[in-house]
């Protein structure tokens, strides 16, 4: 079987090249990449971790769709590329410091913890959201980043939602304040993030929830508010 890999090396000329490589049948994409590195081309650069879809390190794009390399079985002629909207370090390896920055900007944590009881239902409310492994597939799939690189993006907003929906959060206002600029209102609700999430998280729904909580704190859609209706 043959797949194509988009390669990049800033210190080589040309820096970009798409190469065609033969791989054995029956492997996951990650196993195939490891096979190439160990037997044919040790310069092929990518990230590998747990092999079982939980560490979140091996995200790539296959034929334009985000996948975890360890959870994808290649097909003939697949084109493998690095994630979008990340700085490509080399080949399929991208810089993921942006995850830390994004979470920091979104203040995605428990702002002020209080002692309280949590029911089975309350815990279930954010069970799926807290399965996020920060693989950043949703970030790569999100079209908003093409026009606004400062957008907080799906995983960060889902994480904010997780904490605002937690009965332990006493200071929901601080959480909501932090996501007004480049946050909840910048999302187009297209659902591309939901489609690629390997954990079945639905950031679009979480963002919708955050919008209604924002409204409770007096915030509104800035696009809507500045619109001239001719009254």
């Amino acid at each position: 079987m043959h797949i194509k890999i988009a390669r990049f090396d800033a210190h080589r000329s040309p820096a970009h090249a798409t190469v065609d490589v033969g791989i054995p049948e029956g492997l996951t994409l990650l196993q195939a990449l490891l096979h190439i590195k160990a037997t044919a081309d040790p310069t092929l650069t990518f990230k590998a971790g747990c092999r079982s879809g939980i560490c979140g390190i091996c995200g790539v794009r296959v034929n334009g769709r985000e996948e975890l390399a360890c959870a994808y079985k290649p097909n003939e002629g697949d084109l493998v590329e690095p994630l979008q909207y990340h700085r490509v370090m080399r080949d399929l390896a991208v810089e993921k410091k942006s995850i830390e920055e994004t979470l920091g900007n979104a203040a995605a944590w428990l702002h002020h913890s209080r002692q309280t009881t949590i029911s089975v239902e309350e815990e279930k409310r954010t069970e799926v959201q807290s399965d996020c492994m920060l693989c950043a597939l949703c970030y790569s799939a999100c079209p908003v980043f093409a026009v606004n690189e400062n957008f907080l993006g799906p995983f960060a907003l889902t994480r904010v939602y997780r904490y605002t929906a937690d009965p332990r959060e006493e200071d929901i206002k601080s959480a909501i304040d932090a996501i007004q600029s480049n946050g909840v209102w910048d999302c187009t609700l297209c659902g591309a993030c939901t489609a690629v999430c390997p954990q079945g998280i639905d950031p679009k729904m979480d963002i919708t929830q955050l919008r209604s909580t924002s409204a409770q704190f007096g915030y509104g859609d800035p696009n809507f508010m500045t619109m001239n209706f001719g009254f």
Binding site: L110, T117, V120, E122, R162, R168, E169
Partner: peptide, 14 residues
């Protein structure tokens, strides 16, 4: 861990 927000699974009595 509870005070930091770890979402442990719960029993009916919370």
């Amino acid at each position: 861990l509870e005070s930091l927000g770890v979402p442990f699974s719960r029993r009916e009595d919370a």
